[in-house]
Nucleic acid binder design. Structure first.
Lengths: 169, 169
DNA sequence: CAGAACTTTCAAAAAATATTGAAAATTCAG
DNA sequence: CTGAATTTTCAATATTTTTTGAAAGTTCTG
C-alpha cells in the first residue's frame, strides 16, 4: 500500500466511523484529512481533495472549529485562510468528550431533574421514578468520570487506568 | 407534570439522544418505552403507543434484541410475543459499550494495522505512520478501558472511579 | 477606494435513511 | 391438518439530512 492509498483509506474509514457516531461523514473526512496533513490546508485544497463543493467544505471546516478540533491560520503574504488540526490524539479525544458532554449530557440531566418532579402516587409512578433516579445516578457517574478524563493529561490517564486494570481482581 | 406526560417526554428525549449517537430515533424510543414499562409489551402495544407501523415496530424490536437490550417472552396461554427491557441501567450501559466496541472499535483496529503497513520512506510517510501509531495506541487504550468497564459490576465501577477522582490531585 | 480574491450563507436539489403497507411466512389452537 | 392470528420481509414511499451552487458578504491589494 502506498502513502496515497493509505491516506485515502484513512479518510474513508474515519468518515465511516464518524457517521456511525452521529457525526456528518464529510465533517469526519475533513477532520481526517487535516489530521494526516503535515501542512495547514486551504478550503480549496480540502474541496479538491475530497471532491466536495466550496460551500460544503466551508461549512464543515467551521463546524470543526466549533468543535475545537481545528484552527484557522493566516499566512503572511497570503490572502487565503489555512486550516490545521490539533494533532495530539489524546487532546482530540478530550476535546470531543468535553464537547459531547456539554452538548448532550448536560441537557439530559436537566430533563431528568424535571422528570423527577412528576406528581401522583402508586406502583406505576414509583417504578417510573425509580428508572429516572437510576438514570440520573448513572449520568452523574458518567459526568464525573468524563470530566476527570477530559481534564487529565495523557500520562495520568494511562497510568490510572493501568492501575485500575491491575486492581480489578 | 403527570405520569403520562412524564413518560411521553422521556420517550421523546431518549429518542432525540439516540439519534445524536447514530441510533435510529424510533429504536431509541421503543427502548425508552420498554425501559419504563413495568410489564412486557406486545409489538401491537408498541405500535399503538408510538404511532408507528407494525413493520417498523417489528424491525426495531428485533434490532434491540440484536443489541441485547430487550428480550422476548412467551406468556402461557397467549399467542402473542411479549417484549421486555433489561432494567438495570448499569447492565444496559455495559451491553451498549460491549456491542459498540465489537461493531466499531474492532474493525477500526484492523484497518489501523493495515495502514501501519504502508510502504515508502521520507518525512511525509513518517508523519502519516506517526498519526496511525498514535491512533492505534489510543484505540488500544480505549479497548482495554472499555473492556474493564463493560465486564465490571456497578459497585466496582463506582468505587474505582471515585478512588480515581480522589487520587487525581 | 475599486475591484479581485476569497469566504459565507442559504434555498433548492440530491442523497441517504427510515417508514409503510401489503404480501409471504410462520405459528399454534382446534 | 386447517386456517386464523401473528410475525416477518422488503419494494415503494416518505422523511430527514446533506450537498450544491449561486448570490451576498468580506477582506485586502494595488
Amino acid at each position: 500500500m502506498t502513502l496515497q492509498e493509505g491516506k485515502e483509506q484513512f479518510v474513508q474509514t474515519w468518515g465511516a466511523l464518524g457517521s456511525k457516531w452521529g457525526i456528518n461523514r464529510t465533517m469526519a473526512q475533513v477532520h481526517a484529512l487535516l489530521l494526516i496533513s503535515p501542512e495547514a490546508l486551504t478550503a480549496s485544497e480540502v474541496k479538491e481533495t475530497l471532491g466536495i463543493s466550496m460551500g460544503n467544505a466551508n461549512m464543515n471546516l467551521r463546524a470543526l472549529i466549533d468543535w475545537g478540533l481545528i484552527r484557522k491560520e493566516h499566512k503572511l503574504g497570503h490572502r487565503k485562510e489555512y486550516y490545521f488540526a490539533e494533532k495530539d490524539i489524546w487532546k482530540v479525544a478530550q476535546q470531543i468528550i468535553a464537547e459531547r458532554k456539554k452538548r448532550e449530557l448536560t441537557p439530559i440531566q436537566s430533563v431528568l431533574s424535571e422528570l423527577q418532579q412528576i406528581e401522583g402516587e402508586g406502583e406505576e409512578v414509583d417504578s417510573f421514578k425509580k428508572m429516572i433516579d437510576d438514570l440520573a445516578e448513572f449520568s452523574n457517574f458518567a459526568d464525573k468520570t468524563l470530566d476527570t478524563v477530559a481534564t487529565s493529561d495523557r500520562n495520568w490517564m494511562v497510568n490510572s487506568f493501568m492501575k485500575l486494570l491491575g486492581n480489578k481482581k
